[in-house]
């Protein structure tokens, strides 16, 4: 029973990071019908910005690069990484995708793959190929919960992820921008005809998605402490699977999809199947696409002839 709860909590922990990344995939896909392969690498950059941010702010705050855990530092680092990735997301869209808006979709797809590799291997050149240890931005406590012991970091990951998902939910469903975004996602041409500035909506969507990925990156660093330039590949693929599972284009669906994948993996990891853990997300993906291509919450759209 203990280990059941333990696995569940671990699963929710990694699941909420998948969810944060999945949100970016789902929003961009909803609007542009493009799998933004580079999104997972923005997540990676987010983690590295957290790594460097922690040193920079430590230096500024008390003159030494040695990181002293604390909430002010954590908040600063989080915001720094969010800002950097927001900018990166904006540049990605502006430089790589926008010029191809009217090109065949395959061109955008290939560009996305190229961009993804550029960030990954460019990251290797800039940050170095070896794993880095993410600084302890917050002190780690063991908490007792229903008879299992969990770390304070797991709780923080969950709470911070929830806060940002809440903000996103508000933006998408409670603001004028959110309405414009949903309109563009529903029908690009009509939205443009109605006077919605589609280019701006797309830019902002990339920025928001990238910011969420940055949050995911910092939280990942906080709880797994090891980061490296290629870490986005697997995580990103799984997050994408989460988005498809929840119904691509569907915001709450991405969150649920992320949690489901995280939990399933966590239980698989503790079972005799643990060596197959990395394949499970893909098996899930193939099963959904075969039996319910629209995902759990999506609706299926037939092509108009």
């Amino acid at each position: 029973m203990d280990s059941f709860l333990q696995n569940l909590i671990n699963g929710i922990g990694i699941g909420s990071i998948y969810a944060l990344i999945a949100l970016g995939y789902t929003m961009v896909y909803g609007i542009l019908k493009l799998i933004n392969f580079a999104h997972s690498d923005v997540f990676m950059v987010g983690a590295f910005m957290g790594y460097y941010g922690a040193r920079i702010f430590s230096k500024l705050m008390h003159g030494s690069e040695v990181v002293e855990p604390g909430w002010p530092l954590f908040t600063l680092v989080l915001l720094f990484s969010v800002a950097c990735c927001g900018l990166l997301g904006y540049l990605n869209e502006r430089i790589a995708y926008r010029p191809l808006r009217n090109a065949p979709r395959i061109a955008s797809l290939i560009t996305a793959i190229g961009l993804s590799f550029l960030l990954e291997y460019g990251g290797q050149m800039v940050f170095g190929p070896d794993p880095k240890f993410f600084p302890q931005l917050l002190e780690k406590h063991q908490l007792q919960f229903l008879g299992t012991s969990i770390t304070s970091h797991t709780v923080i990951v969950l709470v911070v992820a929830l806060i940002f998902m809440g903000i996103l939910q508000y933006i998408v469903y409670g603001t004028k921008f959110g309405r414009a975004m949903r309109a563009v996602s529903h029908n690009f041409e009509t939205a443009a005809l109605m006077g919605i500035p589609t280019d701006r909506v797309i830019s902002i969507t990339f920025v928001i998605g990238s910011m969420l990925a940055a949050v995911g990156g910092v939280l990942y660093g906080l709880s797994y402490s090891k980061i490296e330039p290629l870490m986005g590949i697997m995580l990103g693929l799984k997050a994408f699977v989460a988005a498809v599972l929840g119904g691509i284009g569907n915001v709450p669906g991405a969150v649920i999809g992320g949690l489901v994948i995280g939990i399933v993996e966590s239980f698989a990891g503790a079972s005799p199947l643990s060596t197959y853990k990395d394949a499970i997300a893909f098996v899930i993906l193939i099963l959904i696409l075969l039996f319910r291509p629209s995902g759990i919450f999506g609706k299926y759209q037939a092509e108009k002839v």
């Binding site: 799998i35 994408f240 699977v241 993906l285 193939i286």
Partner: peptide
Amino acid sequence: GDYLAIVTLG
């Protein structure tokens, strides 16, 4: 298109 890309990758 892109779904197939992901599935084959998977």
